[in-house]
Design a protein around this nucleic acid. Structure first.
Lengths: 212, 212
DNA sequence: CAGTGTGAATATCTTCACAGCA
DNA sequence: TGCTGTGAAGATATTCACACTG
């Protein structure tokens, strides 16, 4: 297959497959069929086969998928078979929590620069990183090889942070601030707000109670 | 319209609309058209009108939507025009970070119980909450009126946490642990893993570089 | 012969286009 | 006149069903 346009939903599911495969691999499982994997992540088996087919042929007919190979293949497909250096902008509560969270490095997203525009914060050290003035992003992005920007400012400062990042030549942005940002077309932006999931849950609970 | 089945994507967008409307409201804007709102969140204007139509008629023809009214209407539609009491299971790094994060209470999700199965943690106080043995969930869920369970355990303990929560009569679960969990049909589960967004971003960046 | 890979069929979501109302 | 609300059309995504292969 190796098609051009890949559904957003496929990417999300690949991340889920990866998670499950990782846990299975740790449990010592070596091979899995699309049916079994489908059960584990509650999707349709053909969905899995189709999702994988966008990137290549990773299975063995009559057998299934070798877990370690499949993990490698998915990581390659997503582009996470390598390190990504990140710039974090906004050293508030959330920013500090993320800086301390060593899961980032473990998953290959290495925060190498912490930025803020607050004079009181600049120069202080957080998790081994000196907080640098946001206006110096451009130099640092170049010198440290930063590719991903992580915005953790308050909402009203998110756009400015995005502007600095874009200007500095960043390749993509993850925005944790509860505000939409505008960036030039080619730069991808992903939004993180786990309250969305809380809202969805509240909605589903309310709905089922309404029916009852 | 007031239809029965509502697309998952619609719920996600409602959360986005809410975010933008909130920011606009704070900026003193009173009325907005679906076109203007659509620009702000980069979706199709009909999409917004259709999303809202699932829940009722909130606009004024020839005028647009009164922002405060619309916010109220969306909150009601999602079931977040009230408080939700939550149980947090797993007082590790992530659990502690969430307990300290007062944004939860501000958005109406009040963590009233912190649970763990580690004897060393039980009895300690975190952000004003005494950590309680997970086995005592049932009593506490009843006594404190907890409705939502938040799982912040390591992946290998997520299923057990889910089992305790289900057994205790919880109405819905948010799972921050990087593992899928199985629960009986009627109980809704939402997964939170912001690395999914990092993966999606890495994918998009890699894709665009590959094209270049 | 079990289980993948995939074209065809179905289901779902999004966008269009315009009727209808303030 | 301007913008909502919505049926119909179009675009996308999911599932089916089976040919194909190790």
């Amino acid at each position: 297959m190796k098609s051009e346009h890949i559904p957003k939903a496929t990417i999300e599911r690949l991340a889920v497959y990866l998670q499950i495969l990782g846990n299975l691999g740790r449990d010592g499982v070596n091979i899995i069929s699309s049916d079994k994997l489908a059960q584990a992540c509650k999707v349709n088996p053909s969905q899995i086969r189709k999702d994988l087919a966008y990137f290549g042929e990773f299975g063995v007919r009559g057998v299934g998928y070798y877990i370690q190979e499949l993990i490698t293949a998915i990581k390659q497909s997503l582009g996470i078979d390598r390190h990504w250096y990140c710039a974090l902008v906004g050293v508030g509560n959330l920013g500090r929590a993320l800086l301390r969270h060593n899961e980032f490095a473990r998953r290959g997203f290495i925060i190498r620069g912490a930025f803020d525009c607050d004079q009181d914060k600049i120069g202080k050290v957080e998790s081994g990183l000196e907080v640098i003035c946001s206006k110096r992003l451009k130099t640092k992005v170049r010198d440290l090889g930063l590719e991903i920007g992580i915005i953790t400012t308050p909402p009203e400062r998110a756009q400015r942070a995005a502007d600095y990042l874009v200007e500095s030549g960043i390749k993509g942005i993850i925005n944790f601030a509860p505000a939409r940002i505008a960036v030039p077309e080619p730069i991808p932006v992903e939004y993180v707000d786990y309250f969305h999931q809380f809202y969805a849950l509240a909605f589903h609970i309310t709905l089922s109670q309404h029916r009852a």
